[in-house]
Design a protein around this nucleic acid. Structure first.
Length: 735
DNA sequence: GAAAAGACTTAGGAGTTCGACA
DNA sequence: TGTCGAACTCCTAAGTCTTTTC
């Protein structure tokens, strides 16, 4: 029996017992808040389907089953799937995972189209050569796409500008040209009025009162509801991207040659729907029709269209928490676990082949080493109209530098044009091989692995294990690294400390997989701000201790260590902190006043003049009061710092002050932890590995074993995506 | 057998919401 | 209670791998 089937059997035989135990376990792992979320989300699903998914399913005898469906919902939904629980627990019967046919019946309401273009007000125009011009509406829309992005990095990219302008001119030509000017030069176009218009709109939306925002959100949800769910084999499932992508400018990453090109509007005629043969075909928007209707039950998409930039196909699929995605994840991680049994043999084989007399074998062995040790991607061939990025098989001469001492520097752009830069020590034979692969007549621009492509490599892998491909190595090594890191964590400390330790393990995996993010623009400023905050908290703490001594000098003798740090804060440093604190406080008050004034300005039209005047007066009064209070405090703190004598409030007691000091100490500790996390995570993105590479059962195991609520480790979305793991792994589970 | 098409996963950034803190 | 930054979700580009076509 394979480990895989053992695992399945364990899941199946324990599932009933687990049903009864689940509630107790849930108490341990889910907080009240998370449970509330769960029940709300389940309730919503039932309600939404009851009221909105008005799909008329026909039974085999042709009768209308909609009523029965509704009755089922009312009665608690799908009783065969567990009492009061509408979740389809496919993981309790994971045998039916494979097979050509993916579903028996599939019903859905089609897709949701973006709103039609809303023309600009008549006073907002593109300026050409200094003069406002009237554009045909189709061209105005395209100019608007660019105008809205004017302040972004994209709009400053010459390729983006060039591609946009070419497509803009094409659209102009298609609709008869501009009546006021012959638009031929990008440099003569001034989009600033258009930018200002969209920017104001954004600001106005942001400044809307919260009840307005809530109302808008509710309306949006109402229109989306019919598309959010579908019926798969009679069961409700959530649809993922049911909103058709709106038109806009293509935002290719890195140096993409097509970045900035016009992404055209997708029409119903462009869309192919995939439904069950018996399912009702949803109505196309009035006066329109669908491109094609398919009944292909060997695939899992609900709709597709061809996009005009790269000519590739876009699909509407099931959401991440659907049974399809869950099963697929489960299979992926089981495949990676299967690799455990073969990895020793594979490593032995490729190590021996590193010295093979056949060039192809040497290249296969060396590439496998890089994929296994440095978690490189396979690296398929790219076309000229794509960004120049590489993976293992497509590495070129210039991406690999060899240094004495078997040291190799890899420097290339990987997926999404993310730089992979690593200086590493490699196996001496790998070093020799790389030297051979770079030997003359090869020169920059030439492939390092000139005999290889991913399909050759994957064929080699499949000789060891069915279904083994290059990407399985990444999943295997990521999850294996996580397991090893988690094994090192001692089961002690606070929940926060355990979470920090978990994140550190997660970070190791993210670094292995080279999951980066651009350092946020405000990162350095943020770090400085936190450091200032820590200084201010230390100042407050020392002040409190000094007050304690003012009140009772004898306490110092009893708690010598406790008071040691009060000497650390010099008069000069204290003055510096006080001045900074006071300046920030005054800035804060002034900023708030400015913001509130703008907000009131937006509301002016909706109130009487008297009301407006009254509100403005009140705002000014509040502001003046706060400002004078802040100025008084400034005076007080400065005088305290100068005299090194602090105001004692009548409510102070030694005990109360001690409690305040302890609270500050706790906050300083937490802020220091936060700073450490911020620094270490500034360039590393933990989410991608957590979502795609780390077997979620490892996280569940950690949560249960270390008594950390699962919602500290998985967001709501991840808890839904990995429901199967939360229910099937216990504290002893191992990858 | 190579290239193209098709179907799926993986990925970072933009936009939105949440929660800590003053 | 309001503000601001962090956390989270959404969006869609960019990969991998399989299947189909020529």
């Amino acid at each position: 029996m394979t480990e895989n089937s053992v695992n399945r059997k364990i899941i199946a035989t324990t599932s009933n017992k687990r049903k009864h135990e689940q509630e107790d376990k849930t108490v341990n792992t889910l907080s009240k808040q998370a449970k509330r979320e769960q029940s709300i989300s389940k309730g919503n699903v039932v309600n939404k389907v009851k009221t909105n998914l008005k799909i008329e399913a026909k039974d085999e005898d042709g009768s209308d089953s909609t009523k029965q469906e509704e009755d089922d919902d009312v009665n608690g939904f799908d009783e065969d799937q567990g009492e009061n629980d509408n979740t389809f627990k496919w993981w309790e019967n994971p045998e039916d995972l494979d097979g050509e046919v993916k579903w028996e019946t599939l019903e859905h309401n089609g897709v949701m189209f973006p709103p039609d273009y809303e023309p600009l007000p008549s006073n907002i125009k593109l300026y050409y050569d200094g003069k406002p011009v009237n554009l045909p509406i189709e061209a105005e829309e395209v100019a608007g796409f660019f105008g809205a992005l004017l302040e972004s990095d994209h709009a400053k990219n010459p390729t983006f500008q060039k591609n946009f302008f070419e497509d803009f001119k094409t659209v102009l030509k298609e609709c008869g040209g501009c009546p006021d000017a012959d638009i031929v030069s990008f440099d003569k176009c001034d989009f600033s009025k258009i930018f200002q218009y969209y920017d104001d709109k954004r600001e106005q939306k942001k400044a809307l009162p919260s009840h307005e925002k809530k109302k808008m959100k509710e309306e949006k949800e109402k229109t989306e509801e019919p598309y959010k769910f579908c019926l798969l084999n009679g069961r409700k499932e959530q649809v993922g991207n049911f909103r058709i992508e709106p038109p806009g400018l293509f935002r290719g990453r890195g140096a993409h040659p097509k970045t900035g090109k016009l992404k055209r509007r997708v029409n119903p005629e462009d869309i192919t729907l995939n439904l069950g043969k018996e399912a009702k075909i949803p109505d196309a928007p009035p006066g329109r029709k669908w491109g094609e209707i398919k009944h292909d039950n060997t695939v899992t998409w609900l709709a597709m269209w061809k996009e005009n930039i790269m000519g590739s196909v876009k699909y509407v699929r099931f959401s991440q928490n659907s049974s399809f995605k869950g099963m697929s994840d489960f299979k992926k991680f089981e495949k990676a676990r299967e690799l455990k049994k073969h990895i020793d043999a594979i490593r032995k084989d490729y190590r021996s082949k590193l010295k093979s007399s056949l060039m192809i074998d040497r290249q296969i062995a060396t590439a496998t080493y890089l994929i296994d040790v440095f978690a490189l991607r396979a690296g398929g061939e790219k076309k000229d109209d794509e960004a120049d990025t590489v993976g293992c098989c497509s590495l070129r001469f210039e991406h690999v530098f060899l240094k004495p001492g078997n040291t190799v520097i890899f420097d290339f752009l990987g997926k999404d044009s993310i730089r992979f830069y690593q200086e590493v020590h490699v196996d001496p034979q790998v070093f020799k091989n790389l030297k051979i692969f770079k030997k003359e007549p090869k020169r920059p621009g030439d492939d390092l692995f000139d005999r290889l492509d991913p399909s050759i490599l994957n064929k080699y892998f499949q000789g060891f294990m069915n279904g083994l491909t290059a990407k399985v190595f990444r999943t295997y090594n990521a999850s294996k690294t996580m397991q090893d890191q988690l094994d090192k964590i001692p089961n002690e400390g606070t929940i926060n400390e355990k979470v920090v330790a978990f994140n550190a393990a997660n970070r190791e995996v993210a670094i292995l997989c080279n999951h980066q993010r651009t350092v946020p623009k405000a990162h350095q400023a943020g770090v400085e701000k936190i450091n200032e905050k820590i200084e201010e908290m230390l100042w407050q703490k020392i002040k409190l201790k000094r007050i304690m001594l003012q009140m009772d000098k004898t306490v110092k003798k009893k708690h010598k260590e406790f008071f040691e740090e009060i000497e650390d804060l010099t008069k000069e440093k204290e003055m510096e902190i006080v001045e900074r604190w006071c300046k920030k406080e005054i800035d804060r008050i002034e900023n708030k006043f400015a913001k509130d004034s703008v907000k009131l300005g937006y509301e002016e039209k909706s109130m009487s003049k008297v009301d407006f005047k009254e509100k403005l007066m009140k705002l000014k009064e509040d502001h003046d009061k706060k400002l004078s209070k802040a100025k008084e405090l400034t005076k007080q703190y400065k005088s305290e710092a100068l005299k090194q004598k602090y105001e004692e409030k009548s409510t102070y007691t030694i005990e109360k002050l001690k409690v305040q000091v302890e609270k500050l100490e706790e906050r300083i500790k937490n802020t220091n932890l936060q700073l450490k996390d911020k620094e270490e995570n500034s360039q590393v993105s933990l989410g991608t590995s957590k979502m795609n590479y780390i077997d979620p059962r490892l996280t569940v195991m950690f949560a249960k074993k270390f008594n950390v609520p699962i919602e500290k480790l998985f967001t709501r979305t991840l808890r839904e995506k990995f429901a199967w793991a939360i229910e099937s792994a216990d504290e002893n589970w191992r990858f």
